[in-house]
């Protein structure tokens, strides 16, 4: 739904209201989303709005009356309007690239410039793609650090641990996830749950990776 986000920038104040109102509707209605996408795809490809019979084909509807009803609905949401002959005029139908190109002359849209410096969630959470692994948390030893059983942690193997990092490590043959603390020359692995005791490696400590982020999906 990328094109919807961009609309906020190109819409005037009063349309913005319509848009917000519409957003509530559209967000809850998958079917409408799909249909709007179909029409806007058509618009992008052919450079004009579809006729009623073409909409019928797009939506796989035989009856023009059903098309008429849908168009009425879309008209109310401010996505399109009809001219005096009943043909469709796009208002907010345009997609991403189109919107940027049809801004009134003389005023370049800020959108294009602004969007250059955005990153995806993937880029935010993953620094080195080739060295990143997922892990499902089973224990609660980092409960107070906000890592709970069932959480998904993103582990980066390319990082070297520094003081305060959460690490996945093998201590004397046992695997654990703890906070990496340096005290002088020795290393201590700290839990974040009073039920557990800090671990001081006796013989061997092998750090398998550093936790870069934690993901908890609720829905």
């Amino acid at each position: 739904m990328q094109f919807l986000i961009i609309l906020t920038i190109s819409l005037t104040g009063e349309r913005l209201f319509a848009y917000n109102h519409f957003m509530v509707n559209i967000a809850n209605n998958k079917k409408i989303q799909v249909r709007v996408k179909l029409i806007s795809d058509f618009y992008r490809k052919s450079g004009r709005m579809p006729s009623f019979s073409e909409i019928g084909q797009l939506f796989r509807l035989k009856s023009k009356n059903s098309v008429f009803k849908i168009v009425n609905k879309l008209e109310k949401t401010g996505l399109l309007k009809r001219d005096h002959k009943g043909r469709l005029i796009p208002l907010s139908m345009k997609q991403h690239t189109k919107v940027l190109g049809t801004i009134e002359a003389g005023f370049p849209s800020p959108a294009e410039e602004e969007l250059i410096d955005t990153i995806s969630l993937d880029d935010l959470l993953i620094q080195n793609k080739d060295a990143t692994f997922l892990l499902k948390v089973t224990g609660d030893s980092l409960k107070d650090a906000g890592i709970l059983p069932g959480d998904m942690v993103i582990v980066d193997k390319s990082l070297n641990p520094v003081n305060g990092d959460i690490v996945i490590a093998q201590v004397d043959g046992e695997w654990t996830m703890k906070i990496f603390k340096k005290r002088g020359n020795s290393i201590i692995l700290m839990p974040a749950n009073p039920k557990y005791k800090p671990i001081q490696p006796k013989n061997e400590l092998k750090v398998a990776g550093v936790v870069a982020s934690v993901i908890r999906k609720y829905k």
């Binding site: 997922l134 582990v155 996945i168 398998a208």
Partner: peptide
């Protein structure tokens, strides 16, 4: 599934 290998370590 997510495009990433999963470590099977119990922690």
């Amino acid at each position: 599934r997510i495009h990433m290998p999963v470590l099977n370590i119990k922690v």
